[in-house]
């Protein structure tokens, strides 16, 4: 199967005074539709930097990122928000929900960025929140939701724009194990049922049970451990 997302010899160097620090060094990696790739590694190993580059948020120092076979890492800065809007959904460890919006409005924000009509926004946000088991929490503000519920809203928001790649950074780090399992189960469901590619960075040992492939990253260099059978 042709990969949806491909990283070729991806490198990110930072200048710190007179020193050059390599956050990510020569990482090559692919993920296809319906597949969950898990990236593991200690703190500071380069997982977040890699996810930022894969999500076209951070420009690599060298190497290439291809989306469905098209290189996007050489696109000008002004084109990248459009790529992120159309191709990616993001799930963050700290949820990053908008505290002044209800669960439904949070989900709708992603749709507003894509200029979706009001009717379609309402339907889509309701469907997604229902699919995430939050039909009775739609009009709640994040402050009134539990950690697990917040992350489910964040997943619904990430999926709202119908992206074909989901990037999840430590999606269960702020949750208890039961909620963590629920989130992993949801991510797997969306990958398998909707054919989305999921790239997930996680410390959570239970994440391994949901991944199709596992990549370890240490000091910015990646090694593939999986596939998992």
């Amino acid at each position: 199967m042709k990969p949806l997302l491909e990283a070729r010899a991806l490198t990110k160097h930072y200048e710190q005074g007179t020193m050059t620090v390599a956050a990510v060094e020569g990482v090559s990696f692919t993920v296809s539709g319906g597949e969950i790739a898990l990236i593991i590694g200690p703190s500071g190993s380069g997982k977040s930097t890699l996810l930022s580059m894969l999500g076209c948020i951070l420009r690599p120092t060298s190497g290439a990122i291809l989306l469905a076979g098209h290189e996007v890492s050489n696109l000008p800065d002004r084109d990248l928000p459009r790529i992120r809007r159309r191709c990616f959904g993001f799930v963050f460890q700290s949820f990053h929900l908008f505290p002044f919006l209800t669960a439904r409005e949070n989900v709708e924000t992603a749709l507003r960025l894509r200029k979706i009509s009001a009717d379609a926004r309402r339907r889509r946000s309701a469907d997604l929140l229902e699919a995430c088991g939050l039909e009775d929490r739609m009009d709640f503000y994040p402050a009134s939701l539990s950690g697990g519920e917040k992350q489910r809203v964040a997943i619904a928001r990430a999926l709202a724009g119908d992206p074909f790649i989901l990037l999840a950074d430590e999606p269960t780090a702020s949750l208890d194990s039961a909620n963590g399992e629920l989130i992993f189960e949801m991510l797997r469901r969306f990958a398998k049922k909707d054919g989305k590619a999921v790239v997930m960075a996680s410390h959570d040992p239970s994440a391994r049970g949901y991944a199709d492939r596992i990549h370890a990253i240490v000091d910015g260099r990646m090694t593939e451990i999986g596939p998992i059978n």
Binding site: R78, P81, L113
Partner: peptide, 16 residues
């Protein structure tokens, strides 16, 4: 700022 960063990550344009 966190919400603005989230919007940027989600693909909000500079104009948005």
């Amino acid at each position: 700022l966190g919400e603005f960063a989230t919007l940027k990550a989600m693909g909000a344009s500079a104009r948005d």
